[in-house]
Amino acid sequence: MPLDTSTYSLGLLRVDGRRWNELRRIHAQIRTQAAADGSSYLEMGHTKVMCVVTGPTEPGPRRGGNVGSAGGAGAASGGQHKDAEVLVNIVIAGFSSVDRKRRGKGDKRTLEMQSTVANALAASLHIHLFPHSQITISLHVLSQDGSLLAALINAATLACVDAGIPMTDYVAACTAGSTSTYAANDESADPLLDLNHQEEQELPGLTVATLGETDRVAVLVCESRVQVSRLEGMLAVGVDGCKQVREILDRVVREKGRKMIQEGTVERGTGLNDMDVD
């Protein structure tokens, strides 16, 4: 859609030319790795993430490592769980950001993201259907430009859909911010949707993920200082963005399914309308 400069002041545009409620371009693919149970690739602007899901499988010998895990009644390691366990492993490539930062295995930020993604997905996936098993989600960050956690959650959701693991609904995530800093104490600050790296550095922001089309918030992470009065607006914009993200993810899955049916790999299903006949 062309920008109509006559009705929209240029002063209101953000550094990358977006308006306050615009998402960046989201491009996603599923089934990118033929050998994996489920896989996906997701770009949110310049944040690029790859995801591979293995499982549900019988847990192998535990390789003691730093992985975020969720689910499983009684989290005793190596024990027999009533529910499937969701393990998340995030690898951030050294070349992913501008400054080449070495992140060790025990990086606290990575660990926190791992457990956030694991808990968010464990809540949506029907893990009770797979006792004594584990679902391993490997996420690889190829490029970072803000909204990393949101991109990770979206990629993991897509890969789980591809793996055919039953779930309540998509967990779609995005970020929201505010147009002025905490220090400015600006009461009239407006909310922003989908922060990029530059905005994330300067402005307060939060990551929100919702379950499907509902307003039910699955993840809410806010790591910056912000006046509580601004929070409501930010959250509302974020939740609205999540719905848009869900729509985009859903379209990706549908497109893949339609293609598979056209190619004849999957049999055509019974139409819903056929059901109402008898």
Partner: peptide, 10 residues
């Protein structure tokens, strides 16, 4: 989409 009969989670 009644042409394909595909449903997605949720």
């Amino acid at each position: 989409d009644s042409n394909t009969g595909i449903v997605t989670p949720g």
